[in-house]
């Protein structure tokens, strides 16, 4: 494969991204601007995550891509193939075999270990965006640690729905300093963000921002004293593997109201099925 530089991007670009990543790791939760490149895929398909992956991949790495937890959906397949072709790295769907995992909207169920890197695709890195449209103002709010507005959003949730209805992209505070958008992961995954052994890198291509969580960082989900944070999931076991503790997708299976709940993390579900676990809907 000589038509491309290793992992598609040229070395100067990767160097620029690595500098942003290092800065992000040094200031956990801080959004570092970077010169996002045009990638051969549309914005919203993970251009930020792809650039971060390209910058951290080495020829010895094993690469895994998940989209909403699944290894076999369009976004996951296309990005995996992209790096197979442009970097020639080994790919896998097994979470613990992978050294770099690019993810969209989920954290794998299996606990990640030291030596692994989790790369998130981020559509909107600014947690205050929909409350304060001025970027100049939100930057000032971050720098001066003025985060009262974030709680106004949660207040509005409770006043309208009786509980905090934000269920994904749930804002977190990193090391008692920066409020961060964890990308649109379900709030079920929020507790895994903190104290994680793996490095977590966040890339927003269109918005040209990179941020990061070094291993074992303190991450706290925002809440009220009388409405504490709650990690929620569908109250069912997985239909295929019977898991009680995993995040579930609800699938409509016929036009008569039939539905089933299955693990959104396909690797986790398949591994459990291979180990003999069986759910009530398994064939």
């Amino acid at each position: 494969m000589n038509a491309y530089n290793f992992a598609y991007l040229d070395e100067q670009t990767k160097r620029m991204i690595r500098r942003a990543l290092l800065k992000g790791l040094a200031i956990p939760g801080y959004q570092v601007p970077f010169a996002s490149r045009e990638m051969p895929m549309p914005y919203g398909w993970g251009t930020g995550g792809v650039q971060v992956s390209a910058a951290v991949l080495t020829p010895e790495d094993t690469f895994k891509v998940i989209d909403q937890g699944a290894d076999d959906t369009t976004n996951a397949v296309s990005i995996r193939t992209f790096f197979q072709r442009t970097a020639g790295v080994a790919t896998t769907t097994v979470t613990h075999d992978a050294t770099v995992i690019q993810t969209r909207h989920r954290i794998p169920e299996e606990a990640l270990g030291e030596g692994q890197i989790l790369v998130y695709q981020v559509p909107i890195p600014e947690p205050l965006r929909f409350l304060e449209p001025r970027e100049s103002e939100t930057r000032k709010m971050h720098s001066l640690e003025e985060y009262g507005l974030m709680h106004v959003k949660l207040y509005e949730d409770i006043s309208r729905h009786g509980h905090i209805a934000t269920s994904y992209a749930y804002p977190v505070k990193v090391e008692g300093r920066y409020v961060m958008d964890p990308s649109p992961i379900p709030k079920f995954d929020n507790p895994k963000l903190g104290d994680m052994a793996a490095i977590q890198l966040f890339g927003a291509g269109r918005e040209q921002r990179i941020y990061a969580l070094p291993p074992y960082t303190q991450v706290v989900s925002l809440d009220f004293e009388d409405h504490p944070f709650e990690a929620t999931k569908a109250d069912h076991p997985c239909g295929m593997c019977g898991a009680q503790d995993s995040y579930l997708d609800e699938l409509i299976i016929d036009d008569a109201g039939g539905r089933m709940f299955v693990c959104s993390d396909t690797d986790y579900c398949e591994a459990r099925q291979a180990a003999g676990h069986k759910g009530k809907d398994a064939a």
Binding site: E146, G148, L149, H151, V152, Y155, E156, D226
Partner: peptide, 23 residues
């Protein structure tokens, strides 16, 4: 803040100075 309820508007300054009890 025109997109935020009356209660949220009044509460914003309280939350900005660290009030964290919804009730």
């Amino acid at each position: 803040r025109m997109g935020v309820s009356a209660g949220g508007n009044v509460g914003e300054r309280l939350m900005a100075v660290g009030e964290r009890h919804y009730g």
